[in-house]
Structures are given as structure tokens and as C-alpha cells.
Nucleic acid binder design. Structure first.
Length: 219
DNA sequence: ACGCAGATAATCT
DNA sequence: GATTATCTGCGTG
């Protein structure tokens, strides 16, 4: 008989989402014929605690999955073209999630390459949107379980990595709470994405909008 | 190496 | 109508 899978890491309150995030490093994720080892994550907390979190202002149609039980996939669409994957955390009724930012492909490399194009192996799942592409995950997988095999993706526990190999720093690309060091990665892993500060977008609307002499649109 | 600009659409105010 | 938990390509050093 197969050993029971130990998901006790996920049986923690939402207030421990940082510990859950750190604990997910080294775990494996398998979906659609590709398997990765998780090398980089970010923690996101709940209502009123974390201005960078989608659940900061309470449940919405998009973020309500963060208020459900742990171990569910939260897939969201950003910037008009990219899908990002999270593992929900915390007990039912509390909001928390861990963004999966990067992985090292350890199975189905050819399939991952066919989805990602001719890039170096370390780039196959380097960055949250690239990870989703490599695993063949999009919005149709949103709200499916990562634990019971009913969805396309499955989380596979692994022994905790040595704490000394975990590094931390500010989360990538977030506008709010940009100093909170809730990004965690495995030291020296080439699959870890580069840090990028949030870059404020220039105003998108029609050009001629009144005063503010400092705002120059390009040419 | 690093910085910037553009692409492009759901979500929320 | 503003914002965005990104990526790519191109410029400069």
C-alpha cells in the first residue's frame, strides 16, 4: 500500500502563512506531465493585514478562493496575458496564499520545453507566469484541489530543506508593502527569478488631460 | 549587468 | 477609468 501523504504543513492557521511558504520550498508539483521542485515562493496574508494581497479588502469573486481550505489552487490572470499559481493556506474562513514563483523541472523536461520554446533548462519555470506555462496550467485549473487528485495538479511533500539554504527578501513587483520580506528562495538555485522592483505605469488615458506639466508622454 | 517601454485584458473602485 | 503578485525586447554601460 502507498504511504499516506503527509500534508500536515498545510494544516496551519493563516497567521502562519510565512512558515507555510518556507515549508513549501523543496516540495514538488506535478501537472500535465511535468514535475518541478519548488525553488521560490511568496507569502500573502489576509484581510487588513497585507496591502499587497488580493484578499486585503475582503473576499471578491476572484479572491474568495483564498478564504477556503488550504491546498487548493488559486490561479489568477494578470497584465492581460499571464497566469500565476498559488497554493491556498490557512484554515477555512481565513485568507492566505503562497505564490509559486519558480521551480526546477525534474520530470517531463521535453514537454516543458515544447510549451516554453527553446530556452535554457533553468529558464523553463523561472518566474510565476513561466512556471504556469511549463506546467500547462491556466484559469481552468483555478479552485481545484492540489491534494486529492481531482484536479490537474498535485502537490508532493518532501523533507524540509536545511533552514540555512533559505534566503528571503522583498516580494517581486508589488506596489504596496514593498519592504515586507515575504519572498523565500533556495540559495544558489539558478531557477530563481530575478528581483524586480515595482515599476509604476505611466498614465494610460487620453493625452491632453489638463495641467501637470511634469507628465510627458513619449514624444 | 540594469533600466525602461510596450503588450494586453480581467478585476475592482 | 485606474490598476496590475509579468514577460520580452531593446537600449545603454
Amino acid at each position: 500500500m502507498a504511504d499516506p501523504v503527509d500534508y500536515s504543513l498545510l494544516d496551519a492557521p493563516a497567521s502562519h502563512v510565512v512558515d507555510t511558504a518556507r515549508g513549501l520550498l523543496g516540495w514538488q508539483l506535478e501537472a500535465n506531465g511535468v514535475r518541478v521542485a519548488i525553488t521560490e515562493v511568496e507569502a500573502y496574508a489576509g484581510v487588513g493585514e497585507d496591502p499587497a494581497s488580493h484578499s486585503h479588502r475582503g473576499p471578491t469573486e476572484r479572491s474568495s478562493v483564498m478564504f477556503g481550505p488550504a491546498g487548493v489552487l488559486y490561479v489568477y490572470f494578470v497584465f492581460g496575458m499571464h497566469w500565476c499559481m498559488n497554493v491556498t493556506a490557512g484554515h477555512e474562513g481565513e485568507a492566505a496564499a503562497v505564490l509559486l514563483r519558480a521551480g526546477k523541472v525534474i520530470g517531463g523536461v521535453e514537454l516543458a520545453r515544447s510549451r516554453r520554446g527553446p530556452v535554457a533548462d533553468r529558464e523553463l519555470a523561472r518566474g510565476p507566469a513561466r512556471l504556469s506555462v511549463a506546467l500547462g496550467i491556466d484559469g481552468s485549473a483555478n479552485r481545484t484541489s492540489l491534494l486529492d487528485g481531482t484536479g490537474p495538479a498535485r502537490l508532493i511533500p518532501a523533507a524540509a530543506v536545511p533552514p540555512a539554504t533559505i534566503r528571503s527578501g522583498p516580494r517581486v513587483g508589488v506596489a504596496a508593502a514593498h519592504d515586507v520580506p515575504w519572498r523565500f528562495w533556495l540559495d544558489g538555485e539558478p531557477s530563481v527569478s530575478a528581483y524586480r522592483r515595482h515599476t509604476p505605469r505611466r498614465r494610460t488615458g487620453t493625452p491632453g488631460t489638463s495641467d501637470t506639466p511634469g507628465t510627458r508622454r513619449t514624444s
